[in-house]
């Protein structure tokens, strides 16, 4: 069989209380951005959502609903204003600023959002097992969407290892077990690591990255 190229987007480790203790994003998954020059008036409807300026209506030229304004005329956006402290919506409302170049893309996850998503998964995991029509069900093992698949492995001690991959990617179980091994060897055996706290250990970082790179080169089933 031909070994297909690994398509892993990210890895999350969640402790037994539901807080995020580690995350890793694969370097070869970039969120695409689109730049386009607009004339007045703007044909997109924008709104502020979660301290970001996002598209509410009017998809065109690859710009989708939910995309955030990442920059204007080459100046990067920081939340709902630009780096030079000007409010994005005010800049866009002023006709004198046109024609204007706006960069759109899927908003990047901030660390706070990641922490929130991790605790959300923790409770969804619990509800999933509670709503089971069959007795003695575990929590969510795998969650599938049209763009990614989430694999979750809970250890006996309650730590969850979560891997986000391409929907077509298989053989994730081996990689999940390998991650657990790396966690036990380089986080748990580190005398300076206190349990349930975020993992900040250089050895852990390098070993996890080595596993991911190896999986990338050789395919997941060869780990």
């Amino acid at each position: 069989a031909i070994e297909c190229k690994m398509a892993i987007f990210s890895v999350y480790i969640i402790n037994k209380a539901g807080s995020l203790i580690y995350h890793y994003d694969s370097p070869n998954t970039s969120r695409p951005a689109i730049e386009k020059t607009f004339s007045f008036p703007l044909e997109l409807v924008l709104k502020v959502f979660d301290e970001k300026v996002v598209v509410a209506f009017g998809e065109r030229d690859g710009i989708k609903v939910g995309h955030a304004v990442l920059g204007i005329n080459g100046i990067t956006a920081e939340g709902r204003s630009l780096q030079d402290k000007r409010d994005i919506l005010e800049v866009l409302a002023n006709e004198d600023n046109y024609p204007i170049n706006i960069k759109f893309g899927r908003p990047h996850l901030t660390i706070n959002e990641r922490i929130m998503l991790a605790s959300m998964l923790h409770s969804l995991f619990a509800i999933g097992s509670q709503l089971s029509p069959e007795p003695q069900s575990s929590g969510i093992h795998a969650l599938e969407t049209d763009t990614f698949k989430l694999h979750c492995h809970q250890t006996m001690t309650g730590v969850k290892f979560v891997i986000i991959t391409d929907p077509k990617q298989s053989h994730i179980d081996a990689l999940l077990r390998k991650l657990y091994e790396v966690y036990s060897d380089f986080a748990l055996k580190n005398p300076f690591y206190s349990l349930d706290m975020p993992i900040r250990a250089e050895l852990f970082d390098t070993n996890l990255q080595a596993v991911m790179e190896q999986a990338d080169k050789l395919g997941i089933s060869n780990i």
């Binding site: 989708k64 999933g128 575990s138 795998a142």
Partner: peptide, 15 residues
């Protein structure tokens, strides 16, 4: 969580 734009979104989960 999706790294790219979704069309249909969530489809199924397994326990």
């Amino acid at each position: 969580l999706s790294p790219i734009d979704m069309k249909e979104g969530f489809q199924n989960f397994t326990t």
